[in-house]
Design a binder for these strands. Structure first.
Lengths: 127, 127
DNA sequence: CGGTATCCGGCCGGATACTG
DNA sequence: CAGTATCCGGCCGGATACCG
C-alpha cells in the first residue's frame, strides 16, 4: 500500500517514515516522462541524443531533468566519455530493469484495452 | 512501445493513429493520482469520502478530476444513489482491475527497492 | 554533443464558496 | 455528501542563449 502514509498503530514511527518515503518514490516514478525514458532504454545503452529521438515529444529540458531524477534514485547509470565532442551514455541498473518489467505490463495493458477505452470515451462524451 | 508515436513504414496511417492514442492513454494513466486511486479501490467499492480518507493528501478537486478521468476511460464505474444526502459509489471495471494488477507490481517494486533507493539518493547528494 | 541558466506564459492544483 | 465554479499563487515546462 502506498496510498496511506500512516497505517496501523501510530506509535511505530519507523513504519510511517518508510511509508512516506514509499510515497515520495512512487511520486517520482509515477510520472509520464520517467516511465517513458525507462521503457525507451530497455536493455539498450543509449546516448542523450538517441533518447531524445527515441521519445516522441520530449524536450531537452524534460529529458535532462528526468534523467537526473532516475540517476538520483539509482535506476539509471550515467557514463561520461571525456572525448570531444562529449559522449554520454545511459543504461538501466538492476532496479531499473526490475521497474521496466512492470512498465512493460503497463504498455501491454494500454494496447490490450485500446479499442475498449476508445469506445468508453465515445460513450462518455454523450452526457 | 509507447515511446515512439510513429514506427515502421509511414504508409500505414492507422498504426500511427493507434500509437498516438496509446500515448494519450498512457499519459492519462501514468499520473500519480490516477494510479493511487486505482490502487486504493482495489476490489472494494468505496464512496467519494471514503476514497478521500483512504488516499493521503489528495484534495477534493484532484479526486473528482481524476475520478472523471478514470470514468471516461472506462476504468471506474460510478453509481449514484438518489438518496438524501446523496451517496456515490466507485468501483473498478474489468479493465480497471487489469490495470490494478500492474500497479500492484509498481507498489511491490517500490517497497522492494526502498532501502536501495534511499542509499542511492544519499550517495547522489555527494557531488 | 550534452548540460546549465534564465526567462516567462500557461495550467496545475489548493482554498473557498455555493448548489442539489 | 458529492459536485461545480471561481479565484489565483506557484511551478511546470518550452524556448533561447551560452559554456565545456
Amino acid at each position: 500500500m502506498v496510498t496511506k502514509q500512516f497505517k496501523g498503530s501510530s506509535e511505530d514511527a519507523d513504519l510511517s517514515r518508510a511509508d512516506s518515503l514509499a510515497r515520495e518514490i512512487f511520486s517520482d516514478i509515477a510520472n509520464k516522462w520517467a516511465l517513458l525514458i525507462t521503457e525507451a532504454l530497455g536493455d539498450r545503452t543509449l546516448r542523450f541524443s538517441e533518447l531524445r529521438n527515441e521519445i516522441e515529444g520530449i524536450s531537452h529540458k524534460m529529458l535532462t531533468q528526468n534523467l537526473r531524477l532516475l540517476e538520483r534514485n539509482g535506476l539509471v547509470e550515467r557514463t561520461v566519455y571525456a572525448t570531444v565532442p562529449p559522449r554520454v551514455e545511459y543504461t538501466l541498473t538492476e532496479p531499473g530493469h526490475a521497474l521496466r518489467v512492470t512498465i512493460d505490463g503497463l504498455c501491454d495493458w494500454t494496447h490490450q484495452y485500446l479499442a475498449q477505452i476508445e469506445d468508453s470515451r465515445r460513450r462518455f462524451e454523450e452526457a
